[in-house]
């Protein structure tokens, strides 16, 4: 049931809105086709980013892909929270690591998803920053990759969606945008700084690839 709903909302509805109305063009999305589990990392400038990535994911897998969102941002508004959890398939996590027993820990929550074979969409910048400026990545991504080094990490660069729906806006306007899916990242070293550095440069690499198109 949930799978059908997600296919309808994202693969059909949003996909059509993005291609015909917004003018978003998808490049290299066939990379997602024959893989079962992955960690997708992307730059984050608009609320539409999650919908754009979800609409690029093949039918078969869509119910097992979860955008990761900040709990304290979305739980303020009950409707928003409901929409995120049920229509976007998001998992809401706290933004701070657990200090005491009994609190839920974000890394542990994401690790649990990965252990069960689910995929996640992660915005390593942590927040929607200024358009075009890549902020420093949060450490959580590196911790996850250290724990699960066998899962493919796929970088995605989204260009222009911040014009379609910038921070604070509620109106979606058409602009030509691009989304480029890069090749899975191979890590040579699993030190935290190295992982973050490689992840950042691979998203920037996807950015360069998309500007060539």
């Amino acid at each position: 049931m949930k799978k059908l709903l997600l296919i309808f909302v994202h693969s059909i509805l949003w996909r059509k809105i993005f291609t015909f109305f917004v003018g978003l063009r998808f490049y290299n999305t066939e990379i997602l086709k024959h893989r079962k589990q992955y960690i997708l990392i992307a730059n984050h400038n608009s609320h539409l980013d999650s919908m754009a990535i979800m609409s690029a994911i093949p039918f078969k897998n869509i119910h097992r892909v979860h955008p990761i969102a900040a709990e304290n941002f979305f739980s303020k508004n009950a409707i928003k929270k409901f929409m995120m959890v049920h229509f976007v398939n998001a998992v809401l996590i706290p933004t701070r690591r657990a200090k005491n027993e009994g609190e839920s820990d974000p890394i542990e929550m994401m690790g649990k998803l990965l252990r069960h074979g689910e995929s996640i969409i992660l915005y390593p910048e942590g927040t929607r920053g200024e358009p075009g400026v890549m902020q420093d990545f949060k450490k959580g991504l590196a911790l996850l990759i250290q724990m699960y080094p066998d899962i493919d990490v796929i970088p995605i660069y989204i260009e222009g969606l911040h014009q379609t729906m910038p921070k604070g806006a509620s109106l979606i306007l058409p602009y030509n945008c691009k989304m480029y899916v890069g090749n899975p990242i191979t890590f040579d070293s699993y030190k935290i700084e190295d992982i973050l550095g490689v992840a950042k440069s691979s998203i920037l690499d996807a950015k360069n690839q998309s500007s060539l198109r």
Partner: peptide
């Protein structure tokens, strides 16, 4: 015409406060 306008506005770099008027243009 819609596609042509969209191509123009992608490059024009209008201000954020122009967004609602942009809807009028469309």
């Amino acid at each position: 015409s819609f596609f042509a306008l969209r191509e123009l506005y992608t490059h024009l770099k209008l201000r954020e406060s122009d967004r609602s008027i942009l809807l009028v243009c469309y």
